[in-house]
Computed example of a mutant assay.
Amino acid sequence: MRRTAMKVRSILAAAAILLAAGTAYAQETIKIGNIVVTAGPLKGPGEPTLTAIDIAVEEINAAGGINGKPIEIVRFDTGSDPKQASVGTRKLAQDDGVLAIAGPFSSGESAVALNDAERLKVLMMPTSASAPGLTDGRTYGWRLTEDETKQFGRLLKSIKANGIKADTAEIVYISEEVVSNAAGTKLYPALLAEAGIKHGNPIAVQYKSFDMSAQAAQIMQANPDLVAIAALPESASKVIKELRRQGFQGRIIGSQIFADPNVAELFGPEGDGTLLVAGFWKGRTEASQSFNDKFVEETGKRGIHKLGAHHSDAQAYDTIYLLKQVMEQAGVTGDPAKLAEEREAIVAGMEGVRFSGILGDDICFAGHDAELPGYIIEIKGGEWTKFDEAPADKCD
């Protein structure tokens, strides 16, 4: 009996030591949540952001972490389902005790998850969501992204300023994708009209459609100068190739939705002359180029083919560095006993913050949205080239 009792006491003591060690470990890291997407229709543009965030975390931890403690990333995968973004927010905030959340990826996911972040009082910074007004009226929702309205408007101004024929346009959009639908039915029509460019009724296509011949034929009948496409890269490629097959000679344009360097390869020869707008240019600074090169190398090691960093990748990378800056200034410790207090300190630190990163220098926020530069990209000779650029707007 005595031996049995001693064994029980030893087991309990060992368990207590392990529990204490686990608690100590939790207190010795800075937990940041990361809502990601590695499956479903958003997998292509969304999955590489994991690499961007991992690069930032590795760099920061190698330099001493945040206030002397390493960053610990806790991830949740939505599978491209907005409902799962809500589940992920609750898990990360309530079960995992993260100090802030980077993500979700898309506007559709973020529109849902930001409501949970507001209720749970934890800072959330979507990594790619660009739908206008997404953070309006929120306390805990911020984003280091530029909305589609401003960026597409910059593209149209550049087209006009550079003497490209743009009297008429047709619009094609993906009906099931939130941002594509909003851009194609509301944003594009309004901005084209504002720019004095006449356009027809927006033409809807479905994400899974393989045959775009009917939609292309409808566009060919109108014979526009421009075709504005609101779609993710794969769908945009199908539309472009069918248009060129049917003989369309005008310019094809797009906003940030398919502004991925991989489209230069995906679109093939039919994509030459396509104009779009992006929030990141790899050659802006040495740091921007260094990140781009490291990103291409690291994604390759993970079996992901990338010709360059998408602006959402750069935004994800800079988001981690912005969180580092704010957390250091707030004196964050990562102590679970101070979780609510430190979450509030982080959110308070976002007010009036200025940040310099690979996206831009001295970035400020209008409301809760960053003011970023815009880069007009032309696919030329199968290459991703800079056609024009617009500086970031000033904050009040």
Results as ranks from 00 to 15, higher is better:
225 D>N: 14
232 L>Q: 08
224 P>I: 05
250 G>E: 04
255 S>F: 07
254 G>A: 13
219 I>P: 01
247 G>F: 00
238 K>W: 11
255 S>M: 10
228 A>G: 03
225 D>H: 02
255 S>A: 14
230 A>L: 05
238 K>S: 14
249 Q>F: 13
245 R>S: 15
260 D>L: 02
254 G>D: 07
225 D>T: 10
252 I>D: 02
228 A>N: 08
230 A>P: 04
221 Q>S: 15
244 R>A: 03
238 K>D: 09
251 R>L: 11
231 A>D: 01
254 G>R: 03
230 A>T: 01
247 G>S: 07
257 I>M: 11
222 A>D: 12
253 I>T: 09
250 G>A: 01
230 A>R: 03
246 Q>R: 12
242 E>K: 10
248 F>S: 01
228 A>T: 00
225 D>Y: 09
224 P>E: 09
231 A>F: 06
244 R>E: 02
253 I>H: 02
235 S>M: 12
240 I>L: 12
243 L>N: 01
235 S>D: 15
231 A>N: 01
222 A>V: 11
220 M>V: 06
254 G>S: 14
226 L>D: 05
245 R>G: 13
259 A>I: 04
232 L>P: 04
255 S>T: 11
234 E>Q: 15
221 Q>P: 06
240 I>K: 02
236 A>M: 08
235 S>P: 12
227 V>A: 02
249 Q>N: 14
252 I>M: 01
255 S>C: 11
233 P>D: 02
239 V>G: 00
227 V>C: 03
227 V>L: 08
250 G>V: 10
230 A>C: 03
246 Q>M: 11
240 I>P: 01
245 R>V: 14
252 I>S: 09
233 P>N: 10
230 A>Y: 06
237 S>K: 14
229 I>T: 09
256 Q>V: 15
248 F>M: 06
229 I>D: 00
250 G>L: 06
241 K>Q: 12
256 Q>N: 13
242 E>L: 04
242 E>S: 13
233 P>R: 11
240 I>A: 07
224 P>D: 09
230 A>I: 00
231 A>Q: 03
258 F>I: 02
